[in-house]
Amino acid sequence: MTQTVDERPTPTTAPALEVREGRKSFGAVHALRGVDITVRAGEVTALVGDNGAGKSTMIKCIAGIFPFDSGKVLVNGAPASIHGPGQASAAGIEVVYQDLALCDNLDIVHNMFLGREMKKGLRLNETAMETKAADVLASLSVRTVRSIRQQVASLSGGQRQTVAIARAVLWNSKIVILDEPTAALGVAQTEQVLQLVRRLADAGLAVLLISHNMNDVFEVADSINVLYLGQTAAQVRTSDSTRAEVIELITSGAPSTGEAVQPRRDRPATSTTTNGSRPE
C-alpha cells in the first residue's frame, strides 16, 4: 500500500530526515498506522492534518519522547535509533514545542543555554554564553529584542517564539521541528515568525513545521505532508498543489479528483513522491 521513497527518480542527496512506515500504538489505540515523511535540508516541510490525525504523536516519536513501535527513521540516509530526547539531540534533531518550554523568570541567554550551560571551571561562563546567544540571534536577523539579558516574561509572544527557535538552532542542529509556532500569535508577529522559519530553511536547516493554518503552510512550506487518521495521506510539493487539494486530503485522506496530486508522483528531481497515498 505504501511506496517507499527509494523510488524517487533522481536521488541527489539523502534527505535530512526520513520516516518509513512508522507505527505507534498505545494499548489498543493505534495512533500511528504507517506514517512516512521526507524532510529535506534547506526546505520547510509542513505536517498537516486534522485534530487527532497523529501529528503530535509523530513528532514525539521523532523527538524520542516515546519511540516508534516499528518503522524506520533515517537521518541523512543512515538508520538512526532514537529512544530518548538525548539521542534525538545527538542526531541533530531539536523540537520547539507549542508551549515553548521557556522559564519566564530567566533571561534570554539563560533560557537558550538551559541544561547546556557553558562553564569556566565551576563558574558559568556568562560572557561566552551571551556572545554566542547574541551571534545566533543576529544570524537569524532578530533585531526586535533590545537586551538579551531581559527576562523572558517581559517578551511578546512572537519574541518568545523567536527565543525558543533560537535555542533550537544554537546547537548546530540539522533538523528543527516546530509545533504550531504561530497558533497564539497576532498577524504581525505571525509574519515575523514565518519569515524566521523561512530563514532557517534558507540557512540550510531541515525544518518540519506542524500547522493548522493553511495560509501559513502555503506561505512558507516547500513540501506538505498530510496525515489522515494516523496514516500519511500524501506528501506533495506546495508549488504543485492548491489549497483545495490539501484541504481535501486533510478531510478525506484522498485527493479530490484523483488527478491533481497523483499524476505528479513521477515528476523528476524537484518533486517529492506522494508517499503512502491511500488505496483508491
Binding site: P85, A101, H110, G115, E117, K119, R123
Partner: peptide, 21 residues
C-alpha cells in the same frame, strides 16, 4: 553556577527544565 540557574529554572517552569534534560 549552573546548579543555581537550574534552581531558578525549576521554580520558573519545572516541565521546561525537565525537557531541557
Amino acid at each position: 553556577t549552573a546548579f543555581g540557574r537550574h534552581v531558578y529554572a525549576v521554580g520558573g517552569n519545572a516541565e521546561a527544565t525537565r525537557r531541557a534534560g
